[in-house]
Design a protein around this nucleic acid. Structure first.
Lengths: 196, 196
DNA sequence: GACGAATGTAGTCACTGACTACATTCCCTC
DNA sequence: GAGGGAATGTAGTCAGTGACTACATTCGTC
């Protein structure tokens, strides 16, 4: 990155980074293009070159969020013991941790209001959730889980995790409770899905 | 309601009703106090008497949403066969139907950003979810479900439903798919929870 | 019927997102 | 390397918004 001159050099990335910070600290509705420009030391019209309008910026944030979520899930599974239970527990923990640490971002990610680039946000989401699908079909292959459409199993599992995170984020569930509720929920799901 | 005179007569209710409509049709972010006032045929400052600021209006909408959700769940369970499976399936259907029909409102309800009146929104939510708790503890009493903290069982069940609805609303799951996915998910949950 | 409280009106302010015309710089081609 | 078109940033403008204030009208109560 060069010293500040007429051209910033990597405005797009700088805007995204600063925006993510603002969203995390003060929520989506507090994100203003003009303030963002001010904070980034650039004129109020500059962001327009990179994000046609406010929504385009939000879409980009969401997409980025899915990428990072995917990395988090991937890392968690990679670090876990190779058995199905351990991997799913690790995955669950990672998901809920991300969801509570980045509550506003998650809301943005799941708010279906993405347009145009919906495809790319969608693709990023699919990519992020590929990990869980992998874990489940592997466990089915090794006989740890009952057979059945792995996609629908993964859906139910992720939905449960997402729901718990959403309830925690909305204050209907204490965040500390998650530490016990989430493993519990996974265990309950598994007790219905384990081959026996 | 009297003819339009200086005092509207029931502005608060009229604003809420119109606001709910706008939120349903065009989303939360499209709700403007001034436009709302215009549509209701009242000066742009009038809403302020009833809702101190925009967030107060949103909070009231959320609270109202929980009340209506509670009624929907209650009605569904009341109309269902008295056995645990039928009741939970009915409850699940009602929840997901409400969640997809009022996607933006649901988002509003679950967005933890309520202030001050958080207590009342919170209370309305608790009230809405009391039904599911009742169904579960009854089923435990009759021996249909495994024993255990009913609150945590209900949490997992609701979280799953909410997660599925959220995924459908965000376009990650086809709405038509819900018709089969939701009963499936309930059955899967139950297969882990049923006494045997 | 008078009077204080509740409710609605009118006007203002700073701020925002969207848009435009224009300036500067980058980088590709010759 | 020079020239020129594309990319990027600046400056100015516009209508719309939420929040606030002073003021007008009406309601309910004594």
């Amino acid at each position: 990155m060069r010293a500040r001159s007429y051209h910033h050099g990597n405005l797009r990335a700088a805007l995204l980074a600063r925006a993510e910070e603002t969203v995390r600290e003060r929520g989506v509705q507090a994100l203003s293009l003009r303030e963002l420009a001010r904070e980034t030391g650039v004129s109020h019209g500059a962001p327009r070159r990179h994000f046609g309008d406010r929504q385009a910026l939000l879409d980009a944030l969401a997409e980025d969020g899915f990428v990072r979520l995917g990395q988090a899930l991937d890392g968690a599974v990679r670090d876990a013991e190779p058995d199905c239970t351990a991997r799913l527990q690790a995955l669950a923990g990672a998901y809920v941790r991300f969801a509570t640490r980045h509550a506003a971002l998650l809301e943005l990610m799941y708010t279906g209001k993405h347009r145009e680039g919906a495809e790319s946000v969608h693709a990023a989401a699919e990519q992020a959730f590929a990990v869980s699908l992998g874990v489940i079909s592997e466990a089915q292959g090794s006989g740890e889980l009952v057979p059945g459409d792995p996609e629908s199993l993964a859906q139910v599992a992720l939905a449960t995790l997402h729901g718990l995170a959403a309830m925690a984020n909305s204050g209907m569930l204490d965040v500390e409770e998650l530490e016990t509720v989430v493993p519990d929920a996974v265990e309950r799901l598994l007790s219905g899905l384990r081959r026996r």
